[in-house]
């Protein structure tokens, strides 16, 4: 069964990071694991970067946009670093594909 994750709903202001605003707080399923990559939040400032796991997460348009979705069952995949993801318990009702 696909593993569900939720994107952290953190909203730090004015820093370089690669987690899109429109996916914050949204739940999806892990599409694939990509391995570890230097953390862009450190690389952007010329700092030595820790390696962070990177995952491709698949969301339904319904989950992202709600009633505004053009076609609720269409999907969107994005790469999200593991430190921006939290596990979602199976019991929680979510709208993952």
């Amino acid at each position: 069964m696909a593993e569900r994750v939720r994107v952290k709903d953190w909203r730090p202001r004015g820093f370089h990071l690669r987690t899109p605003w429109y996916l914050r707080g949204k739940t999806g399923v892990i599409e694939r694991r990509l391995g570890e990559f230097g953390n862009p939040e450190q690389l952007a400032y010329g700092l030595p970067a820790e390696k962070k796991p990177l995952l491709r997460v698949r969301f339904t348009m319904r989950e992202i946009w709600g009633d505004a979705a053009e076609r609720p069952d269409d999907t969107l995949d994005a790469e999200i670093y593991a430190h921006w993801l939290e596990p979602v318990a199976d019991a929680e009702t979510t709208d993952a594909p």
Partner: peptide, 12 residues
């Protein structure tokens, strides 16, 4: 046909 959008947010 289902649409699948891919947002190139990181290293891929």
């Amino acid at each position: 046909v289902a649409v699948r959008v891919h947002d190139s947010t990181a290293d891929m």
